[in-house]
Design a protein around this nucleic acid. Structure first.
Lengths: 313, 313
DNA sequence: CTGTTAGCGCGTTCAG
DNA sequence: CTGAACGCGCTAACAG
């Protein structure tokens, strides 16, 4: 019946308008309970009592907050300290969120298996050791390889290659890229590999020590911005000029590093883009939309800013 | 009856154990609905499409995530762009969270009034223009005053004082501190005040321009780390030595800045401590515990790292 | 002290 | 096509 329909429509519109006028907003808890979904996504963050987030989180948090907002999803930060298991179990069993974003994957990370067993959808922001699980990250093999290739092409043979620990998937992959390049460019004997120092102080000390040895490196690759700052500080104190005496290359994770002088050449790991893509993929996953590629790895971009040059003669 | 009690206890224990064994975890949405609280706290974050969080968020997010965790509270990031009203209204009406943390207060900020009207508990991380609302922040009057006092004591009269906009509560207060010090030290004619530049590029350009004028400043106060990096870049390009020719003072909001060389002297705004205290206070508020002081303002701490010296003769 | 029941506010399904 | 009733999973208030 036309009247029936029109009455229905009119009534509907009226209700809607009144609701809007009364500023009605469905109660989120009730909606969650009834629909069985929370429209919330948890970001698993490793945090100790220093609360010192690594620089790349600066980009991740911003990009995810912004992107997920477009999908009507809320981002919640969940502290997963040394042992992520109890936290994630509670999270999943209480159905606190619809999905979890796993960052800083370890090679032997228990989180993917755990979340799968718990039936909690998840997405790895980074490299997944297992195929089949959705992951969006940086091609860290290429990061390691490109760093070496670039420095070698400039003429360097004595290279200090600093890596984040190999226990991280990203560090593991970078090491593989490093090894591949070392073999390809026959640098096995002249390069020095370090992956046990993480902090600025450690890298500062390492640089001081290494630069005083016989045949010091002519190029240093620092794994991230804090390490790079340590290198710069040590070199400045030793009066070693960049890039005239030593070339310095690092990774750009957080954008503030672009502004530090001396400007450094770096390999842009595109954290912002990776996180944005991760947010988008998660949005589609949770809407049940088909996702084309389960694993995507962006390629690093080398940006030269003058801190690398051929080695001194 | 003793038996009654013991049976009760035993049964209770049994239930609890079985529940634990079965990994029972109450459903969060159901719990929220029944109890009328969500155990979630929203951090209102201003974010445009660049997703470029100001440096101090790095400390805020880390500290809040960590601290709220101790209180069993989840932190959710909520994007409140230009107009925070619709977002906060939805948040409050849907009862998405138990409280909101308001950051980066503007002088004419609508958020406190709005949240009050909506019946949503909130806490200002920063200075509140209204008394009575709970707030924890930095004493920004003291920041402005101390910066001027310190530089004046070193002998400077020609000072470039850079401020974050006066539309922010923090900038407003800093300006007041700046004015008080200017009057007290009779610097009205020789200081230069700027609060319309925010980005590194702007500060870079401003510094270049100012340093070429007649009677350039002998000391520059940069309001935050990005501005300070702009100053350093300009000075480096102009070949102006720090602190021999120009003293540079800035604020420490994010800890990475400690690692940038040349090491800068700064006024530590203690973002990490402020945020931690804010988290604690909110935890107490939500538990209904009495809160002793409604408004707390930490004092800035001057840290000298060698970028300030008496002016050249 | 125990066991039962009535909501919490919404979505969905079922008769009318 | 409309309106009423049920259930989501839990808490709290209520009788027994």
């Amino acid at each position: 019946m036309r009247e029936g329909r029109s009455v229905g429509r009119a009534k509907q519109d009226l209700i809607r308008e009144v609701a809007r006028e009364m500023n009605y907003q469905p109660n989120r808890a009730a909606q969650s309970l009834a629909k069985g979904k929370t429209d919330a996504v948890a970001l698993s963050v490793r945090l100790d009592s220093t609360c010192d987030l690594p620089p790349h989180y600066h980009e991740i948090v911003g990009a995810l907050t912004f992107t997920l907002n477009d999908w009507g999803l809320h981002l919640m930060l969940v502290q997963t300290n040394e042992d992520p298991v109890p936290t994630l179990e509670m999270l999943a069993r209480a159905r606190t969120c619809d999905a979890v974003i796993v960052t800083d994957m370890m090679v032997d990370d228990v989180r993917p298996g755990l979340l799968r067993d718990l039936g909690m959808p998840f997405l790895i922001r980074g490299s997944a050791p297992i195929s089949g699980v959705p992951a969006i990250g940086m091609d860290n093999f290429a990061v390691g390889y490109k760093a070496m290739e670039f420095l070698r092409r400039l003429g360097h043979r004595r290279i200090l290659f600093h890596n984040i620990g190999r226990t991280f998937m990203s560090g593991f992959k970078r090491h593989e890229g490093f090894c591949a390049a070392s073999v390809e460019f026959d640098l096995g004997e002249t390069v020095r590999y370090e992956d046990i120092v993480y902090k600025e102080d450690d890298m500062y000390n390492l640089t001081r020590r290494v630069m005083r040895e016989a045949d010091p490196p002519t190029a240093i690759f620092a794994a991230d911005e804090m390490a790079a700052l340590g290198v710069l500080r040590a070199l400045a104190e030793l009066g070693i000029a960049v890039p005239d005496q030593v070339s310095v290359l690092t990774c750009l994770n957080a954008r503030f590093m672009r502004r530090v002088s001396p400007r450094l050449s770096f390999i842009n790991t595109r954290q912002h883009e990776v996180a944005t893509e991760a947010g988008r993929l998660l949005g589609r996953m949770l809407r049940g939309e088909p996702i084309e590629a389960r694993q995507t790895f962006l390629l690093p971009i080398l940006e030269e800013n003058g801190s690398c040059a051929p080695p001194p003669r």
